[in-house]
Write a protein that binds this DNA or RNA. Structure first.
Length: 575
DNA sequence: GCCGTTTTCGGCCCGACTGTTTTCAGTCG
């Protein structure tokens, strides 16, 4: 039973309870617990075994018992009973935008609609009009929701989301109606993927901006259009874009609200209440009553945090994972910044499957202002990526040495991304490994092995005296291949004890370790290393996304190998 | 169902937009 299985079951329970019209706060308790378990950087089974379940936020006695039942029996009787009451197709209908529990229940109870297919048919036949409170407009909106559902929009990578957002911002600015505009939402928090794009702007003519936005050539479809808030589907990737207009004096509070996360907002508002204030997107107020209230802060986020006695919380941390408490105690981490990065290690040259030469790599690294660069090509077994035979590796070592000798302002290391073979042996013998400056070990085969076998392979690699890091430790390819299962405690322990770094692979399809895993690793005492896995010149830019993930993982400079000075790095390489 | 520096009971974030109403419920973020 994995964390994601249990969080899935809790979410399903929440949906069924919604359909049954249960107490909203009870429903939210299940959703909150699901989120806690999903974000949990360690195995819920371990938390259960160590009797720490009720110490998790949002998990009390009752939910702890349910987790226990799931962990020990693999089943949950309560869930089983609930599922009997509502067909699964009815639960699926909740996934349709604009269709909530009340309407779904109405459709199911009165028309027996228990699947999205039946819903679509009923809309087309006009059957919904027989119901009280549903007229032509609602029916066509539901049908539109069904259409959108069928062309399911997936979450998009951060870099693509930022790209689309920039285009829209550029277009809006060109209207001349905008005084100030910023990306908010999960993109501002630098979350690795986004389900929508949130933009906040200041304008004296909000309704004209709304007209321009909804009529934009970049918008394929208008979902909602109001005085100060509109949503469209972008013609690129069909992603939803929300635009909100506020006054200059509310910009800070609106930016905070619109940046989220949702859980962060809830906690902030609760904190404001506890201190006797009232917080919403228009500001921090002395009182909820609109006649008595005075504005305490609203213009900038800093002002609001400061009035609440808090240190400024960078957007990347705003996930309700303890940052509010840390901020109140003035105990926030000093997050690593892009400017702290002094080099990149995980780069492939045209010796194996990269498209750039050694010389070009050095130029790219200099261009980034790096002090050092490691060139890692694949090892001999990885034939598909033209892994280097021992003799070719020797040639490459020679070539790198020659280039390095010619450099004044940058140190060039010869590295290798060495396969961890099925039994945990490395793809070059130690006698060869010791000639390489930087060995990063990786699993590229045998993904189907058991959790124990995969864990042992990585542990053995960590223990090898020549291995300095483990590349993409969980092996997932987003949307393509599920990560393999490993025992993180064991891997973290080996990495810490043998001073082997774990990579945050910056490639958007990898992002491995993820932010929450990297956070867990750091708390275990493991060092992290950022690697772009660049195979061409453009991919050097992916480092920024690794820094984003590192910041979301609460990492400071001393946690990240790429921040070491050349001297410190050389010492570390010597293990 | 959770949770506690006002509380072990009685709260639980809050406002915009929509459609169907004639003051509001449902949905969303």
């Amino acid at each position: 039973m994995q964390n994601k299985d249990i969080s899935h079951i809790f979410r399903e329970i929440a949906k069924i309870l919604e359909l049954k019209g249960e107490n909203l706060f009870r429903i939210r308790a299940y959703e909150r617990a699901a989120q806690t378990i999903e974000d949990l950087p360690e195995s819920i089974v371990k938390v259960y075994e160590e009797k720490r379940l009720t110490s998790l936020p949002g998990i009390g006695n009752d939910l702890a018992k349910k987790v226990e039942e799931l962990v020990t029996t693999g089943l949950l009787n309560y869930y089983h009973e609930l599922k009997k009451q509502i067909p699964s197709g009815v639960i699926d209908m909740l996934g349709i935008s604009g269709l909530g529990p009340k309407t779904v229940k109405l459709l199911y109870d009165n028309l027996g609609i228990d699947s999205i297919e039946k819903l679509e048919k009923a809309c087309r036949q006009g059957s919904l009009l027989s119901l009280e409170g549903i007229k032509e407009k609602t029916q066509s909106n539901i049908l539109r929701g069904v259409e959108l559902y069928k062309h399911a929009r997936e979450r998009i990578y951060l870099h693509l989301g930022l790209d689309i957002a920039e285009k829209i911002i550029k277009q809006l600015k060109s209207t001349g109606l905008i005084e100030k505009i910023e990306i908010a939402g999960s993109l501002r928090r630098k979350k690795e993927n986004a389900k929508d794009i949130d933009i906040l702007a200041v304008s004296k003519k909000p309704s004209e901006v709304m007209d321009a936005f909804t009529a934009s050539p970049l918008a394929a479809q208008v979902l909602v259009k109001g005085q100060t808030k509109s949503s469209v589907l972008a013609n690129e990737r069909n992603i939803q874009v929300d635009l909100r207009i506020v006054g200059e004096k509310n910009f800070g509070s609106a930016l905070m609200y619109f940046t989220g996360s949702k859980d962060f907002n809830i906690k902030m508002r609760q904190l404001a209440i506890k201190k006797g204030y009232h917080l919403n997107e228009y500001g921090l107020f002395s009182d909820k009553d609109s006649f008595k209230k005075r504005t305490l802060a609203s213009k900038s986020e800093k002002e609001i945090f400061s009035f609440l006695g808090m240190a400024y919380i960078p957007p990347e941390l705003r996930e309700a994972r303890g940052e509010i408490e840390a901020s109140l105690e003035d105990n926030l981490p000093e997050l690593v910044e892009f400017g702290d990065i002094r080099g990149d290690f995980h780069i492939h040259s045209d010796y194996s499957d990269g498209s750039i030469s050694l010389e070009e790599i050095v130029l790219c690294a200099k261009d980034k202002g790096y002090e050092y660069v490691g060139i890692c090509d694949h090892s001999q077994s990885l034939k598909v990526a033209r892994g280097l035979s021992v003799s070719l590796l020797h040639k490459k070592i020679e070539a790198v040495r020659m280039i390095d000798n010619r450099q004044k302002n940058i140190k060039v290391f010869c590295g290798s991304e060495v396969d961890i073979l099925a039994q945990g042996k490395l793809d070059y013998p130690d006698s060869v490994l010791k000639e390489i400056d930087f060995v990063i070990a990786a699993i590229h085969s045998g993904f189907k092995q058991s959790k124990q076998e995969l864990t042992q392979r990585i542990v053995r690699a960590c223990q090898n005296p020549y291995v300095r890091a483990i590349a993409h430790p969980t092996g997932g390819l987003r949307g393509l291949r599920e990560p393999y299962e490993i025992d993180f405690d064991e891997v973290f322990k080996a990495a810490r004890d043998y001073n082997t770094a774990l990579e945050i692979n910056c490639h958007p399809e990898r992002m491995d370790l993820s932010d929450t895993r990297a956070m867990a690793a750091q708390r275990f005492g493991v060092k992290l290393i950022l690697g772009t896995d660049a195979h061409n010149a453009e991919q050097f830019d992916l480092m920024a996304f690794g820094v984003n993930a590192a910041r979301r993982a609460w990492l400071e400079r001393q946690d990240v190998i790429n921040c070491l000075s050349l001297d410190e790095l050389s010492k570390w390489l010597g293990k």
